[in-house]
Design a protein around this nucleic acid. Structure first.
Lengths: 224, 224
DNA sequence: GGTAGAATTTAGACGGGGCTAAAGTACAAA
DNA sequence: TTTGTACTTTAGCCCCGTCTAAATTCTACC
């Protein structure tokens, strides 16, 4: 089965919201993420329900059916593989790829995506650290906690970002916060959750609690 | 300026027809190439004329304006670069790439296409031998004549194909007629224009006049 | 020069996907 | 239990790109 561009966008939106905030997914949440009016969302939900891609009960939100989730996962696979391609082969920076990948993910060709996967050596994570589903839709969850949950003097590796906006990623670049970077919490300011960090070989600097809550890290267990 | 998918498809169609059959381009020719009804074509022509992408006089066909031609050339550039990518990097056969490239050519990002161009080492011809316009829209015409116009005992190199259908390209593959192949005309059957060919190291075989008229060759000037 | 037949355009409709305005529903607080 | 408020849906509209049926224009032939 093949779906329209708009249908695919909705499926992906529902999947993402469900992933973060659980199910059922509300009309307004979709409306906000997709920058459309709630009334338009309701219209589309009816269509998706007719096609059995979502379970929908009026006034009570939606969740993806098995088929819907399958399709959403496939889209995410495509999106993330294209992001890898753009960064690793074409030399884009990680803050530039999202918009382009949003277009590329709609290209219809299973062969294409499988070959792209092979061409990239079957990467398991995209340039933002997000896991890439395999052709069957399965993927490993990344082990992660929020940087904001780290305690004083704990060390950790940056493994992912919650925000994918250009401005946020550029901010990280300016502070040399790249995926894989090792960092240590040297101070936590209790009032607003700001955190002072030190990277492996640099001066300590401050990031806001706002930022700290957008960064996923894997804690380093001290083998002292 | 950015155009819709349908608008881009029409521009490309008009460009292609004008290239083969000259200008003005008729409604019915577009209708046939695009597999839509003439009435639909007329509707779209009005829109394209409003946007000054074509010159359109009712009942008298259309031709591209400077802007329209520029846009069409850009689409062709994108299409052909993606075809190169699919064949050279992802290992597709030349008969498989057209459909996928038709989708990829609509991806909107100038940076993307310029980087792809560099990544492929700025190819001048696509897998079917068609020239690839540069970022400014300029391209070299390939020197070519039709195989059907070769005389007896003349030798030539296959440089392009007129048909891009899968079945035609597969037929060529089966007969080892690849781009760059050197061939010699060993017999011409006057009745229907069939041609008996010999490739560099093979047995002579027959191709129909129909096929001979779909193949572009560059004649080899004998330096005897 | 008139006219038949082909090509083209106009008129009117439809489905997809979006919007606004108005109405209906759910739920928390009184 | 009632009610205010936020959320959601319905009704009705619009634009895009397509279609069919009918009208118009072009053109080639008599």
């Amino acid at each position: 089965m093949t779906y329209t561009l708009a249908e695919e966008d909705y499926l992906k939106a529902i999947y993402k919201i469900a992933e973060r905030h659980g199910t059922p997914v509300s009309t307004s949440a979709i409306s906000e993420l997709m920058q459309t009016r709630p009334a338009s969302v309701t219209d589309m939900l009816k269509k998706l329900a007719d096609k059995e891609l979502i379970d929908y009960k009026r006034y009570h939100g939606v969740s993806l059916t098995r088929t819907g989730a399958r399709q959403a996962t496939l889209l995410i696979r495509k999106h993330r593989l294209w992001e890898c391609f753009l960064v690793e082969k074409l030399g884009f920076n990680w803050d530039e790829v999202h918009v382009i990948a949003e277009q590329l993910e709609h290209i219809q060709s299973d062969t294409l995506i499988d070959r792209l996967d092979d061409y990239l050596d079957n990467p398991k994570f995209d340039p933002h650290g997000d896991p890439i589903p395999d052709a069957s839709g399965a993927y490993r969850m990344r082990y992660q906690i929020l940087l904001s949950d780290l305690g004083l003097h704990q060390r950790a590796v940056l493994v992912g970002v919650r925000e994918h906006t250009s401005s946020f990623l550029q901010y990280l670049d300016q502070n040399h916060l790249a995926l894989g970077a090792t960092l240590e919490v040297v101070e936590v300011l209790p009032y607003d959750g700001s955190v002072r960090l030190r990277l492996s070989d640099g001066e300590p600097f401050l990031i806001s609690g706002q930022v700290a809550r957008q960064l996923f890290v894997r804690q380093i267990t001290e083998a002292t």
